[in-house]
């Protein structure tokens, strides 16, 4: 185990988990939400040749997934530093 006390480890995990939950909500909203559940409503909006719901389902959700992962990478690197648990 690293130099973290049990309470610090608990705190680190809690912060990580709340970050994950926030990002997974966005993940859910852009794919299952915008791409599937609310697709008909969003399709009323047209951007260029794309109906918006269709765009989320076939393009937009994928771009946002990439953004979510890299945001997580950066935010976790910051959290690791804050708790002094980054590797070497």
């Amino acid at each position: 185990m690293s130099q973290l006390s049990e309470a610090q480890a608990e705190q680190y995990w809690k912060r990580n988990r709340s970050l994950m939950i926030r990002l997974m909500i966005i993940w859910f909203v852009v794919s299952f939400g915008c791409g599937i559940l609310w697709v008909d409503t969003l399709n009323l909006i047209q951007i260029g040749g794309y109906k918006l719901g269709f765009w989320f389902a076939q393009q937009g959700s994928i771009f946002i997934f990439i953004g979510l992962i890299f945001y997580y990478v950066v935010a976790m690197a910051r959290l690791d530093r804050e708790f002094g648990v980054e590797e070497d």
């Binding site: 990002l23 997974m24 993940w27 794919s31 791409g35 599937i36 269709f54 389902a57 076939q58 959700s61 994928i62 997934f65 979510l68 992962i69």
Partner: peptide, 12 residues
């Protein structure tokens, strides 16, 4: 779209 979202969303 199930393939497009399904086969990429797993990476998140």
């Amino acid at each position: 779209s199930v393939f497009l979202m399904g086969w990429t969303g797993g990476y998140v």
